[in-house]
Design a protein around this nucleic acid. Sequence first.
RNA 1: UGGGGCGUCGCCAAGCGGUAAGGCACGGGUCUUUGGAUCCCGCACUCGGAGGUUCGAAUCCUCCCGCCCCAGCCA
Length: 568
Amino acid sequence: MSGVETKVPPNFIRSIVAEDVKSGKNGGKVLTRFPPEPNGYLHIGHAKSICLNFGLAAEFGGLCNFRFDDTNPGKEEMEYVDSIMRDVRWLGFDWEDRLYHASDYFERLYDWAVELIEAGKAYVDSLSADQIRQYRGTLTEPGRQSPYRNRTVPENLELFKRMRAGEFADGEHVLRAKIDMGSPNLNLRDPVMYRIRHLPHWRTGDKWCIYPMYDYAHGQSDALEGITHSICTLEYEDHRALYDWFLDNLEVPSRPRQYEFARLNLAYTVMSKRKLLQLVSERFVAGWDDPRMPTLAGMRRRGYPPEAIRNFCERIGVGKRDSLVDHGLLEYSVREVLNLKARRVMAVLRPLRVVIENYPEGQVEQLEAINNPEDPSAGVRSVPFSKVIHIERDDFMENPPKQFYRLAPGREVRLRYAYFIKCVDVVKDEKGEVSELRCVYDPATRGGDSPDGRKVKATLHWVCAANAVRAEVRLYDTLLNRPDASSEENGQTFKDFINPGSLEVISEARLEPALAGAPAGATYQFERLGYFCVDPDSTAEKMVFNRTVGLRDTWAKVAKAEGIVKKS
RNA sequence: UGGGGCGUCGCCAAGCGGUAAGGCACGGGUCUUUGGAUCCCGCACUCGGAGGUUCGAAUCCUCCCGCCCCAGCCA
């Protein structure tokens, strides 16, 4: 991987793996896994897990398996399985031929369940879901044993066989592990292992009508694959006892260990698949790949380079405390790589017409512009210049405050790669809005330097009016207007915090001609404005760009501090 | 008033008994044909609190406070 390198900081899981490798545990081998359930799109929180699992494996000479945790056919869809694989590859990871599914192990899992029944460690319960809940007790009171808990082994075997055979309706029976209804850990109060679901599965079709629960499937799947370190998030900490119970009570081929880390929370967005699904299904966004979404698909469309996401994941670290990561760190990571790679180009978002009075009518000259000051090998290009150009409305102020050093009446500035111009007149429309600037240029400053050493305080980007490419530009702001949307006080939900201004569409932007026909996904820096990429919605007739992220903007900071209005 | 976790700078995060890394953010400066980038410099006498052990504690002990997770036939 080239470009920006991020050092791998130490963390507790890496330390554990390092010690295990050093001590020769598992024969010194490391095998991790990334186990998504195909019930939604991957988001940046998954990226943290992917980077951790694949990263650890790579660092210690091991491998990382890819495994679909497909134990609940009611929620899983092919669209999700396709998107998940696409996104992991896009992020830059390769599982080679190690693509597995929990469903690969359904038969083996069933046999193990039979063994547990035979050992008197599992039983078929016929209580309703509601009754099971009641019998489970509460956080402070122990549960009670189900009246079916003492069915005989033959009876359990028979019932379980018939469950599989499809003789019962959904919910009629479940298979439960016989552990301890009095355990303070609710996961150990005879957890359900299998439930009846007369639903086709995307891989096994109609073969099964009973499906294993996550807790029963996960550890054994890990053991079957020879996973050494099974890394998951904090909410599974309480499940570890159950994970271990199954492995300790079954004859498994290997003994994986589960470790938990804190999931990623990013300021001003949500990270749960349930909430993201709501945003999509209730049309708050255009889809899972809406550029405002924290999904990998959304970030890809937004123009975030996978390398930036990987760097971000390294920078945030891996720990066990709940945290809320500043979105500024993600943006920094994105700018950092784009700064090195993106071609510079000029574009005007909100055009203000400028007529250069002393420039020859009808003349067009080609001026040389540098493609990327950070990368000389990117070369140069020519940009057309003529009498009428457009500059950014924000770059002109009729009555500028002292900190504003762009164009103003009587003031001289530089047009990037072109000439010094001075504003000599301001034309307004009937509403009193500035509609045009009349300027004069200094022919001696061609290219942007003045032979007499005269200095100018600002350099403006511009686009030649005659041959500008028109485009739609979509500007994005945070999806939510609160850093922590989980603070759902007095009945409010994250939907009450949705930022109504998260998308701003600029329909009349002007781009320099070099941008015509740029393909979807192409990334540029629009000088002084930020990084932008061509959206898939773009057509030859109507180009569409997304603003990936703005540039660091010192002026915006000053303007805000001084109470000077500045758009976007 | 059950169990499991977690509390180090505004946000992340190292640290594992020897006297508080780093990144982001922020402030200042350098440079600059992007108010971009770069490069400098600054930014926790203090580690949730109170006691204790020790020559020495963010690191060990005790108590207290705060926050998160668990009562799906979801994962």
